[in-house]
Design a protein around this nucleic acid. Sequence first.
DNA 1: CTAGGGTTAG
Length: 611
Amino acid sequence: MVCLRIQSLSTTTISLCHHAPVSSALNFLIPRLQDLHDHRSVSSAHSRILRYGKSSDTIIGNHLLNAYIRCHQTEDAEKLFDEMQNSWNVVTWTSLMVCFVDAGREGRCLSLFARMRSDVIFLPNSFSLSTVINACALLADEATGRGIHGLVEILGFRLDVVVSTSLIHLYAKLNRVEDAGLVFDEMTVRNVVTWGSIISAYTQNGKANLALHLFGEFLRLKSSHPNHFMFSSAVNASASLGRLGIGKCLHATVIRHGHDGNDVIAGAIVDMYGKCGCIEQSTYVFQRIARPSVIPYTSMIVSAAKYGQAQFAVRIFNEMIVNGVKPNEVTFLGVLHACSHAGLVDKGLQYLRTMENDHGVSPCSKHYICAIDMLGRAGRLEEAYNLSKDFHAADNDALLLWTTLFSNSRMHGRLDLATEARSNIMKLSIRNPNDVAGAYVILSNAYATAGNCDGAMGIRHEMRRRRVRKDPGCSWVEIKNAAYVFYPGNLSPAGERETEVLELMKWVGSKMRDMGYESGGLSGLSNFVDEEETREMMIGMHSERIALAFGLVLAPNKGVIIRVMKNLRICLDCHEAFKLISVILDRTFVVRDLNRFHHFSHGICTCRDYW
DNA sequence: CTAGGGTTAG
């Protein structure tokens, strides 16, 4: 590497500028610099520039700097940057900031920006601002990010589309989706990237409904066509809502716009069909991806797992290994879930034990908890407890671990182990007041099903005292491209069809009783949320049942598969009821709960009652 | 000469 001596060269360069042959050689060199993509040719261009004595020229130096950055030569870039001290401008600084972000050293990007503000007092331009905002987003550094936002306002860059779009992205990554929305609302000029950013911001922060609403608004503007980024986010939104109608419509639009060859979109569509309960469609799209990356493979494995198709999941996993695609930690969670849902306990344990040596993915607490749940549900509780000693679970993970062990011990009548787990949960919930809602609900359910009303009331009182809130249980059903959300014991979303729905429920209820079904006889309280809700649940008004009944009223045609989505797990009682209803009415329906799919037909469910 | 969106789990 040639060493630069800028100071000694700078006085002689002026005379060289008027030297015709040298000048034309440089005119030839500058556009070339932009095309250089390998280290060797950049170095040789660098030495030629030195020979011409042009190294103190800011623009040429910046070209050279960016040529090094393009080749990921961070060290050379840093060295050149230092040597350019006398010819720095804001572009030089911004270029090195970008270099650090590309190299995954976002912290150094931030310190460089701070130095630029304090040492050399260059005013940042829109490029420096969007770069540093991007660094904050990657680091999820809220304090610095908000400071930069202030600077954007002070320096008058609020109207810059790229800067404001970066801010939307920043707030999305900070899970401050309201702030992202505020930035979006205040923008006067928006482009496709802006719309794509706000749509993914809402999708990634649990506001998929809003995301889809904005996608529709963008389409109505007809200012430009949605691109593959937007489609990926929109498909993702329909997936998380389980809105098959919208998802299908998006799939068709993706094909019409010629984006079906994009692997990221295809991966999102595989996931969407999987989450909407259409494993066949999911497989169809997956098999048409030429060279699937780890993400579509993982989506396919997870879809199969949720559908209880463990053999299929394992086949896809083997296929991906044969094709040289490296699985990641999510892939293994999918494989373990597949084994767990199908009761393939030993196969699952084998994956847990070999994943590190054979595939270089070390198991984390999520994998252990999944395996422990697998053992526990199969009744192998001693092994489950032993496995729990093999890793160190902290905070939230520890709570999840003991909650899993508690419900499994209780399910298999092991009160001794349940008591131990329970006391651990109580200890942990005192130390970690956040995220204890799930544990409280499980404890309360345990008391309620055991008929211990005082115990259940005590837990509920404790929840109120500590202001622990739990998302209300609800179910929704999509009929003719409209979604209807139902809460327990409330038929009003059915509107004018309310009476018909109630009549159907009563009629089906009497038929079920003729077949020997007793409402609440199994576990009518398992989805307990609050007192009011519990009362309604006791008379068999779980939200999934209302949603199903409403779906049956609105879509009486036997060929229509009713798809019910639920934000909690389906309870045993409803599971039994749905099997009977599929016989009584000779219908097929699919329930997506928190964990997996249940496909009811002819009195049986695809989960074979093991979930 | 320098800048901004997307997909898998929980």
